[in-house]
């Protein structure tokens, strides 16, 4: 009697779980799906609200416009360069200091950690940093997009945690007895064992660079150095239209108005393309990063 009552309660519980999960799924997925639908639908159908669950009169007009806009290409090129160069430096610096502070025999390791952690809670803020960057001559210099944010203390901490739990003391001692120095040990033994953390760091930093907006807004004013995100702001938020050439006559203007919204949907897709392609495969690394970080938290 009691048994059947509890199991009935459990069935209700399971049903509620599935309802909750399905609501979460629909709420998150629908806007994303809608963007795809709207971007490939006829602009008139999108403007009049006829696209809800299915695309209407599929057309790739907006994509044609987007790919003929030179801003998208410049932004893409700049962002790819900033991301590739920046991520390389980020990962190298983080791995090196992360390994260093993971070593329990490092004299002053506590001090180094405190120096790092302090910056997580206190800093100079916007203007003092701005003055520094200006005085270093980094304003309107593409280098600023690579240099700023080169070291994330949070990432150093997860790197340290990773090394502490994977590189055992016995391994280190054995290597030292065989006459291996710290440098060789790091490059020949530690790094090959650290593919997981290298992947996590690479992805974290790369996403950070790809989505970087703030530093570009403040330090980059020359259009030729604009990363994709600044061009995206112009198009998506400041409503600057795509491909302004041949815009002299009124007809073209009206035409641009007509497809403006569809172009926005298309631009969202185009700018997130690398992410959309890579995300399903890389998802486990993102999650792994959170897990390693959670050990500390």
């Amino acid at each position: 009697m009691i048994f059947s009552r509890t199991s009935r309660a459990d069935i209700a519980f399971d049903i509620i779980i599935y309802i909750l999960l399905t609501i979460a799924l629909l709420v998150v997925a629908y806007p994303l799906i809608f963007i795809v639908l709207a971007s490939i639908s006829n602009p008139d159908a999108v403007n009049s609200g006829q696209v809800v669950l299915f695309p209407k009169d599929i057309s790739f007009e907006s994509y044609k416009r987007i790919f003929s806009d030179v801003r998208i290409w410049i932004g893409y090129r700049n962002t790819i360069i900033y991301t590739a160069v920046g991520t390389f430096f980020n990962v190298a610096l983080t791995l090196m200091i992360g390994y260093s502070v993971s070593r329990k025999d490092l004299v002053g390791r506590k001090l180094i950690m405190n120096v790092l952690i302090f910056t997580m809670y206190f800093g100079g803020g916007l203007i003092p940093t701005y003055i520094l960057v200006r005085d270093l001559g980094l304003r309107n210099n593409p280098l600023v997009m690579v240099i700023l944010g080169a070291v994330s203390v949070y990432n150093i901490i997860i790197t340290r945690t990773f090394f502490e739990s994977t590189i055992s003391n016995e391994l280190l001692e054995a290597a030292f007895i065989d006459g291996c120095g710290n440098g060789i040990f790091f490059f020949k033994i530690v790094l090959p064992l650290s593919k997981a953390i290298i992947a996590v760091l690479t992805i974290y930093y790369a996403v950070g660079h790809w989505n970087q907006f703030f530093n570009a807004l403040i330090y980059i004013t020359q259009k030729k150095y604009f990363p994709l995100q600044l061009y995206l702001r112009d198009i998506l938020i400041a409503n600057q239209m795509v491909s302004t050439d041949g815009m002299n006559d009124v007809d073209a203007l009206i035409e641009m108005q007509r497809i403006a919204e569809t172009i926005k949907y298309g631009v969202i897709i185009v700018s997130s393309l690398p992410m959309l392609i890579l995300y399903p495969t890389l998802q486990r690394f993102f999650v792994k990063g959170v897990m390693i970080g959670a050990v500390k938290g």
Partner: peptide
């Protein structure tokens, strides 16, 4: 060698996190 490993990141943190505190 371990200090050399930590150095670049520390120099970076010093320049971009501690100099602004002076500012």
């Amino acid at each position: 060698v371990l200090y050399l490993f930590a150095l670049p990141a520390l120099v970076y943190i010093f320049i971009f996190n501690y100099i602004p505190i002076y500012g």
